[in-house]
Every structure is written in structure tokens, then in C-alpha cells.
Design a protein around this nucleic acid. Structure first.
Length: 667
DNA sequence: CATCATGAAGTTTTT
DNA sequence: CTTCATGATG
């Protein structure tokens, strides 16, 4: 393994310092993932068994990426090596030790929605004032306590410390918290935070178990360390305590997840927490042109709570950063489409090289409209893209039910679309009946292969279900008939697009929209047509495949990983852009109250503005060659035209790196 | 019990 | 201008 040709000296140091705590402060574009993957390869090369290495990431995507890169380096990915998210690794540890914590095998995991409805039930059972106890807010408080590892006996004091509610209010929250945990335990269930919290509990109460894992994970590596929460920190600390080989990589300039529990102090005080820690700074940026680096450096220098880093690049200066003032959001979109046209026509860029970044999801709408009009291909990453539209989700749910009539989740979605007089209460009854009638029926099971009886079968004879009247039963039976027809269509020899089309008609979905006739309804019909085109394309490319395959592959089609293949401009929130890079980047809506976001301004906390500034830093540093930033003078907000002020962040960019333009034209 | 009308609020997101 | 939640109505 010849490291010196592949890595710079700092990266080599990060890779080869295998013993003791190591903090790598890795600037944007400095080869952070490279250092991480080479380190794993290097450890194995040095004779460390893959069994003894644990690598923790934040997302499954990051874990996959890393596995792939390690495989490229080593020729194969050692399958005994644990690489995964904090959560998935904890699931693995927990399932090996369930009995010790008093859980049965076959536990379930509650997602946010399930947790929320549980909290709602508890609030109801406590007879608390609905006005004062919103399940969403209560769950947030519960999550906060778990994330911050607050002990149960100090909860009340902690809540009062950070909030401004009454003692009675917080006492009730504490009661809900306790009840919530009891119910989870009774249901043999964990929520997302429990996965970590219970692993910690396991380690703290069973020293022998802890010792076992400490010896297993002699080498611990953590990615994106600036976004770890207190609970994750505690877990890392426990695992690393014995062998003390903890290696963390992160960039305090890019900490943007405070709202979901990230605590920058973890990275800022790493050197204090782990004695004799070695700090290595990766400051050379390989990604961006000089002007982009210098501009982003000037911006981030305004923040206070951070390490001193001198990000530099050997790359050429490049073009100035363009800042465009647009009359309004339509003119802004017009400007962007025009620039993209120019870049593609005259500067050799492809659509694929371009990304548009915004602060909030809803900003994509005006852009989308402009892109459609100008016929520029685009793709929305995350947020409400094509597959997130209501009508597309609905039709996909119909297809899912056609393929698997026991898919309860899809069934729930379509049962009353179009209106069939079967509401949430009726469905609840049916589900409850299914749970009694079929012991293995599990609403939380997402297992598509589950062949057991489910909702569909019960709908055939709904009179058996207690509490369902004759009228409703007739409606349900009629729906069941419709579904049988839908299933018959699936069994037919029609092509996939024809089947989809037939299902749209048989279900009454199409008629519903045609009858409505409103603009949104017509828009939805258009989108469904687009979906049919998609099905046609799919069939053309895969003549032998059937509806089952199509439904299964739809998931992949909407997956982010396949993005690079298609030549489309990508649109996404700044958050979603983290870790990505593009030759050309447009940052839009850079105005006070938009970016920085209104709530961060209103909170009055300097740290909130600093997080927004880091967010802007992340956005800018995604760009390799060209960076365009735009703001509007006027914008429609909440139905009224508001006069906008350019973002304070724009004033923080050195004027000599900038070229300002004005764009008033709009379509 | 389903559906309609009215009103309030309006980030970022992974597991 | 949305979307979502809630209370009144049929």
C-alpha cells in the first residue's frame, strides 16, 4: 500500500496514526472520506482484524458509500466488519442482548408518526387540555430529553431550565414521558432514540457486556462528528473507553443539524474529553476555485464558536462569484434558466453539472414552473418531487394493493380516495379486527411478502366486524369488489401502462379528478399522464417485466443514488446538498427572513444565526467552478407581496471577489 | 360517522 | 397562497 502517492502529508498522518484518540478537522472538499476509507484499509493492512473495527456514519447512504470505497481499495469488503449508522449498529447490539434488558425477541421500532400517535393517545387518556398539550410538541420534548440523556429524576428541573412553561405543565410532560416509555416497553418496542439509549443502558448496567464490545471494537471511527448528539457522544465514549482508539472526522464549519440534536461542543471539546488526543487539520481544498474558497472563508470567519482553520486551495482563482438582484422570484427563476441556457450552450456545461440550492422546500415551486416552461430537465432531490405528489403516491398505492392486497399501509392510503364513505374510524375497526382475527397480523410490519390474511380478506365479509353497521358494510363490500377488479387487471395480459390506465379508471380515481375540474385537479391529471409515460418507458426498456416488477423498481427509480446517470439540473435544500459537489451552483433567495430564516432571526440567539451562516457556508462550498447567488427585491409570502432586504451574508463577502448583476425580466 | 367549512400557521431531516 | 387541524352539519 503506497500511501504517499495517494494522499497528502496531513491525510497520511490521519490514516497512519492508528493508536490513541485522533480528531481530524476536515475542511469542505479536503478529502475527508478518502482519509476515512484509507484508514480502514490501512488498519487491515497493518494486521488489524476487520472484526475489531467499527465505523459509524449518520445515514445509510454514507455507510453504503464507504463500503463501496473500501471494497474498491481492498478488492472485497470484509463482511465481518461493522459499518453502519449509529442506529443500525445499535439494533444489532440490542438484538444480541434483548433478554438482559427485559425485552422479548422480535421487537419493533416505532417511527416518528407511530410515536406521535402514541403520545396523542396518552394525552387523551390523561384527560389533559388538548390546547395546551400538542402531541407534536410533547414528543419533541420527550425526544429532547432522550437525546440529551437527561435522567428521569432530573427531567422536571431540566425542562424548567430550558423552557418557560409552568411547573405543572412540565410535571405533566414528565408523567407522559414515563407512561410513554412504559407503553413502549409493554409493546416490546423501541423508538429511534431508545435504540441508542437502551444500548447505553445495556452497557452501563452490564459491565461484562460492555467489556465484550469494547474488546470487539478496538478501533472506532466516526464520520460527521460535528453532527453528533450527546447520546451519540456517550455511546462513543463508552465503546472507546478501554482501548482509547477513537478516530473522529468532522468540520465544525459545517455543523447544521442543531435542530435535530447535534451538539457542536462534541467536536469543539473533543481534545479536552479525550486526553492526549492528536488533532490533525485537513485544510487543503481540492474541490473549488480560489474565489469560491476565499469568499466562503470570509463568510465563515464571522462566526465565533469554532476552531481556527485556514482553508486554502492550489486551484486557480476562477470566475468571480456572481450576485444577482432580481425584481421578484419569477425574475429570479428567469435569470437562472437563462444562465443555465448560456452555460450549456456556450460554456460546455451539462445540465447534470448544475445544482440549485434553496433554504426551504417550497422555494422549488416557482423554479419548477420556470424549468417546465423553458423545457430544462430537472430533478428535485428529497422534498416534494414527482414521487411525493399526492396523486402519484395514490396511484402507486393502488398498484401496490393490486400486487399485494395485504399491504395495509397502501390500503389505508387509498381506501377513501375517491370518497367511498369509509373513514378513519371504520378502518381502525377493521384493523383491530384483523389484529384479533389473525394473530400474526402486524400493522407495523412493512414486510411485503407477508402472505397472512389482512385487511383485504376481512373486507369481503365486513359484517363479522363488531361496530360496523349495515350501510358501512355495504360500502366496504363494494370497495372490496372494486379491488378484486383491480387485481384482475393486474392478472390480465395487458401491458404495464395499460394496466395502470385501467386501474385509474376502475378505481374511479380518474373520474374523481375529471369531475372536480379545478386547476389543481387538471394539474394532477397531467401528472398522472406523465406517470403513464414513465410506465411506457419502463415497459419499452423491459418488455418482459410485469406490474410487480414495476412497482418494486419504482423505489429504485426514485432513489437518490441513480442521480448521476441522468442529465438533469438538480434542485434541493441546502441541507440535502451537504456532502455533494457540483461544477456550478446557484443559491437562491438569499434574503433576510429567507436565508437566514425568519425563525433564526426572531429567536434572537447569536448561535442560531451562526448556524444559518454555516448553512450558507455549506451551500457555497458545494461549488467547484461557478457560483451564482441571487436575491429578490420583492417576493410573495403568505399570499402578500413583501419587500425583501438582501441577506446580511451578502455583505460579508469581499467585494473584490464578486460581480453584481441585476435582472428584471420575467416570463 | 363522514364530510364540509372555517381558521390558523407557515424551516431544515435522519433513523 | 397553501396545507392542516378542528368543530359543525347532515
Amino acid at each position: 500500500m503506497n500511501l504517499s502517492t495517494m494522499l497528502n502529508t496531513k491525510q497520511q498522518e490521519a490514516v497512519t496514526t492508528t493508536e490513541g484518540p485522533v480528531l481530524v478537522l476536515a475542511a469542505a472538499g479536503s478529502g475527508k472520506t478518502r482519509a476515512l476509507t484509507y484508514r480502514v484499509a490501512y488498519l487491515i493492512d497493518q494486521g488489524v482484524s476487520p472484526v475489531n473495527i467499527l465505523t459509524l456514519t449518520f445515514t445509510n447512504k454514507a455507510a453504503q458509500d464507504m463500503k463501496r470505497k473500501i471494497k474498491d481499495l481492498l478488492g472485497e469488503m470484509p463482511d465481518q466488519m461493522w459499518i453502519g449508522t449509529f442506529h443500525s449498529i445499535c439494533v444489532r447490539i440490542l438484538s444480541q442482548n434483548l433478554k438482559k434488558l427485559g425485552y422479548q425477541s422480535g421487537f419493533v421500532i416505532y417511527d416518528q408518526d407511530e410515536s406521535k400517535s402514541l403520545v396523542a393517545d396518552i394525552i387523551l387518556s390523561f384527560n389533559l387540555d388538548k390546547e395546551k398539550y400538542d402531541p407534536k410538541i410533547v414528543l419533541k420534548l420527550i425526544n429532547k430529553a432522550k437525546l440529551k440523556l437527561w435522567a428521569e429524576d432530573e427531567l422536571l428541573a431540566r425542562y424548567q431550565e430550558v423552557g418557560n412553561g409552568s411547573e405543572e405543565y412540565y410535571q405533566n410532560i414528565v408523567d407522559i414521558y414515563q407512561k410513554y416509555n412504559e407503553v413502549l416497553k409493554d409493546n416490546n418496542a423501541f423508538d429511534f432514540n431508545d435504540l441508542l439509549a437502551k444500548t447505553i443502558e445495556l452497557f452501563e448496567e452490564h459491565q461484562d457486556v460492555l467489556a465484550k464490545y469494547q474488546d470487539k471494537f478496538k478501533y472506532l471511527l466516526i464520520d460527521e462528528y460535528q453532527d453528533t448528539s450527546p447520546i451519540q457522544y456517550r455511546l462513543a465514549q463508552l465503546v472507546a473507553k478501554k482501548h482509547n482508539n477513537i478516530f473522529v472526522v468532522g468540520d465544525d464549519f459545517q455543523s447544521i443539524y442543531k435542530f435535530r440534536g447535534a451538539d457542536m461542543n462534541n467536536i469543539l471539546s473533543f481534545a479536552d474529553d479525550f486526553a492526549e488526543c492528536k488533532t490533525i487539520k485537513l485544510e487543503q481544498n481540492y474541490r473549488s476555485k480560489g474565489n469560491i474558497i476565499n469568499a466562503s472563508n470570509a463568510l465563515i470567519a464571522r462566526n465565533h464558536q469554532q476552531f481556527n482553520k485556514e482553508v486554502w486551495t492550489a486551484n486557480a482563482e476562477g470566475e468571480p462569484v456572481i450576485i444577482c438582484e432580481a425584481a421578484n422570484e419569477y425574475a429570479e427563476a428567469d435569470y437562472i434558466t437563462e444562465e443555465i441556457d448560456n452555460l450549456v450552450r456556450f460554456s460546455g456545461y451539462k445540465y447534470n453539472d448544475i445544482a440549485i440550492l434553496y433554504r426551504s422546500n417550497h422555494q422549488s415551486r416557482v423554479l419548477e414552473e420556470a424549468f417546465i416552461r423553458k423545457r430544462i430537465p430537472y430533478y428535485i432531490v428529497g422534498g416534494l418531487g414527482f414521487y411525493d405528489r399526492k396523486e402519484i403516491k395514490d396511484i402507486i398505492s393502488y398498484l401496490k394493493v393490486a400486487v399485494n392486497p395485504q399491504d395495509t399501509i397502501a390500503m389505508k392510503r387509498i381506501v377513501n380516495v375517491p370518497k367511498r364513505g369509509i373513514g378513519a374510524k371504520t378502518l381502525d375497526k377493521l384493523i383491530r379486527h384483523a389484529q384479533e382475527y389473525v394473530p400474526e397480523f402486524n400493522l407495523l410490519s412493512f414486510n411485503q411478502e407477508d402472505e397472512s390474511l389482512g385487511l383485504f380478506d376481512i373486507m369481503e365479509e365486513p359484517t363479522d366486524v363488531s361496530g360496523i353497521g349495515k350501510k358501512t358494510a355495504a360500502k366496504i363490500r363494494s370497495f372490496h369488489k372494486d379491488l378484486e377488479e383491480v387485481i384482475a387487471i393486474k392478472e390480465s395480459s395487458l401491458s404495464i401502462p395499460d394496466q395502470v390506465d385501467e386501474i385509474l379508471k376502475t378505481s374511479g380515481y380518474q373520474a374523481m379528478l375529471e369531475l372536480d375540474g379545478s386547476e389543481t385537479a387538471l394539474n394532477r391529471l397531467d401528472n398522472l399522464n406523465e406517470f403513464l409515460v414513465l410506465a411506457e418507458n419502463y415497459q419499452r426498456k423491459n418488455p418482459d417485466r410485469e406490474l410487480d416488477d414495476f412497482v418494486r423498481d419504482l423505489k429504485l427509480l426514485s432513489d437518490q443514488d441513480d442521480l448521476d446517470q441522468s442529465n438533469q439540473v438538480k434542485m434541493m435544500t441546502v441541507h440535502a446538498s451537504k456532502g455533494l459537489e457540483f461544477p456550478t451552483v446557484f443559491i437562491v433567495g438569499v434574503e433576510e427572513e429567507v436565508f437566514p430564516h425568519r425563525r433564526s432571526i426572531k429567536s434572537g440567539l447569536i448561535e442560531d444565526i451562526e448556524e444559518e451562516r454555516r448553512l450558507a457556508y455549506v451551500a457555497m462550498t458545494r461549488a467547484e467552478n461557478r457560483l451564482f447567488i441571487s436575491y429578490t427585491r420583492q417576493r410573495q409570502q403568505f399570499g402578500e407581496t413583501k419587500t425583501m432586504i438582501p441577506s446580511r451574508f451578502l455583505d460579508e463577502l469581499p467585494t473584490e471577489l464578486i460581480l453584481e448583476v441585476i435582472h428584471n425580466h420575467q416570463l
